[in-house]
Every structure is written in C-alpha cells, then in structure tokens.
C-alpha cells in the first residue's frame, strides 16, 4: 500500500498473477474494480450462488444448511419446555448461539474461542428479536407455567466471508422448517412429550399442543453485507476481500421492506447518504432473491 500505483503497475507485468495478488493485494483488487469485475468473475453488486437445504439434522426439531458461495452454515433448533419468567408469563424464549469451530477458518485456533463468534451471536439474536419474525407468545404453552425454549445453534463449517448473512439465512430457514412437537399435560400438571405412535390413543390427558405444527413466521429478515472501498460497493464479499478492504456494512431488511438493522462497525471508509441508499437498494434486491430461494427450498420439502 506504500507503493505508488505506477510502480506496482510496472511490476504487475513482470510478476506472476498469484505473486502480485499476494504482494500487492490492494492494487490487485483495484485493477479489477476499475474494470467493474471481481477476481472471481462476479459483477460488483452480485452476490454468490446461494443454496438452502432443509432438514439435514434429523434429531433436531428444525434445521437447515445454507451455503453462500463456499461459506457454509448449519443451523439447528431444539425445542425444550421451560417455565417462563415472571415478567413475561405468556412468552417463550429463543436462545441463539453461534459457533466457530477451528475447521472453519485458519484464523480460528483450536481450543480458543473465535473473537467474531460472540459478536455475530449477539447480532443474530438482536436481529431476530428486532425483526419481530417470531411472536414469542406463540411459544407459550400454559400461561405462567410452561413455554417453549428454542435453542438455535448455528455452526460455521466454512468461513469464506459474509458470515452474518449466511448465518441469518440458515436461521430463517431453520425456523421455517421447525415443527413444534406434540406435548400434553399429565395428571401432575407437568408437560410431557407425546410420542407419535401413541399420540391418538386413549389419552385422557389434555393435549396442549394437539398436533405437530409449524411456527407462524411474520416477516423474515434477510441481510446483505457490502464492502466499501473508495467509491466502490462490493456485495457479499469473500474472506479474502474482507481481509484486504476493511470497511463492511451489513444491512438487514425484512420482507415488508422495513430496515431491521444498519450495521457498520467502524472502518476507514465513511458511509455517505448515497452509499447508505445504494447498500439498502442492493439489499432489497438480494432479499427478493433469498426469499425466492427459500420458498423453493420449502416447496421442495413439501413435495417429498
């Protein structure tokens, strides 16, 4: 970065491409950006190919595997019955945990928790609660006595940039796949799980949750991370791009177009109003794409 452009420009003709990429990463990217293309062949505002698979974890009540490019997230939800707190007796609870095991990236060292993990985890639970995607009262079973606790665990299997986007997508998909199990009140007033085989038989106990049901989701949040570099806006950056150009902006919009989060943690490039609007416009486009991909995955599930 200390070298003027002209000097490195000369070098680029004498050097192998890979060597130039490692030694002068900024110049390497800038020469691509000037041609409105990125090293992996994408246009600047284009996100990577995204796939969602529902139900990869059979032991969980709801699960999903989301892939954005090579960033891979596995989300699973486990439902447990708990006693609701006194302040909100008719509400359930969602506990979000984001894990970054050391297989996901060379930056994460085994035995030591990744720095990014608690931050993304907090960001996820904030986004899920502020989007209002789940009405916590739906998770209530018996007012003041029993409610559902949804443990959402997201594992990052491959960290290749835009972790939050992929994590949120997998979480939204897992909630769409979630089936709330059947439970009944027994004579002692305790909530017990009803196994499927015996479910219909002579059950004098009152079934609190008569049949397996889907959770009603209000409006799903979708996010897009953009990288700001000079006047360029790069959508859905890879890990390499994130390490070279540091300023990231994550915008979360819900299906009705409300802004759920505008997250910019510092960075050397300042976001002006025009950049804010551009990022929001890119996210709007992307959220339509993601909604379609998710709808396809869900309808594919229903046919099976």
């Amino acid at each position: 970065m200390g070298l003027p452009n002209a000097a490195s420009g000369d070098l680029s003709s004498e050097m192998e491409v890979d060597a130039f990429r490692r030694l002068f990463p900024i110049q390497f990217f800038e020469r691509h950006l000037a041609e409105s293309i990125r090293p992996d062949g994408r246009a600047l505002g284009k996100a990577r190919d995204t796939t969602i698979a529902l139900g990869p974890v059979s032991s969980a009540n709801g699960s999903a595997l989301a892939k954005v490019g090579s960033t891979t997230m596995l989300a699973a939800i486990k439902m447990e019955v708990m006693t609701p707190s006194i302040e909100s007796p008719d509400e359930g609870c969602i506990a979000v945990d984001f894990h970054m095991p050391s297989i996901c990236s060379p930056i994460v060292r085994p035995g030591r928790p990744a720095e990014a993990a608690p931050v993304i985890s907090k960001q996820l639970s904030d986004t899920i609660s502020s989007s209002g995607m789940i009405d916590l009262r739906e998770l209530s079973l018996v007012k003041g006595k029993a409610a559902w606790m949804a443990y959402l665990d997201i594992y990052c299997l491959d960290a290749d940039g835009s972790l939050f986007d992929a994590a949120l997508l997998s979480a939204a998909a897992a909630f769409s796949h979630l089936q709330i199990p059947v439970v009944a009140l027994n004579d002692d007033g305790k909530v017990v799980f009803v196994s499927e085989e015996k479910g219909g038989e002579n059950f004098e106990k009152e079934a609190v949750n008569k049949e397996k049901r889907k959770l009603k989701l209000n409006s799903l949040p979708f996010s897009l991370t953009c990288l700001l570099h000079k006047n360029y806006i790069l959508a859905d950056p890879t890990a390499e791009e994130e390490s070279v150009m540091e300023t990231i902006v994550t915008v979360v919009l819900d299906s009705s177009g409300q802004l759920v989060s505008f997250y910019k943690p510092g960075g050397s490039v300042l976001a002006y109003t025009s950049a804010v609007q551009d990022c929001v416009a890119l996210t709007r486009q992307r959220s339509k794409e993601l909604q379609m991909i998710l709808d396809e995955a869900i309808s594919g599930m229903e046919i099976d």
Binding site: Q258, L259, S261, F262, Y263, V280
Partner: peptide, 19 residues
C-alpha cells in the same frame, strides 16, 4: 463530517426514518 464511521441499530424502522 457527513460520513458515518459507525452505525448500530436496534428495532425495525423504515429506511426514511433511518435517514
């Protein structure tokens, strides 16, 4: 001084409200 260094939001709002 019009550029945003950091932005952090909580709760849903419309884009116009944010601006």
């Amino acid at each position: 001084e019009n550029g945003i260094i950091t932005s952090l939001t909580q709760g849903a709002m419309s884009v116009d409200d944010y601006i």
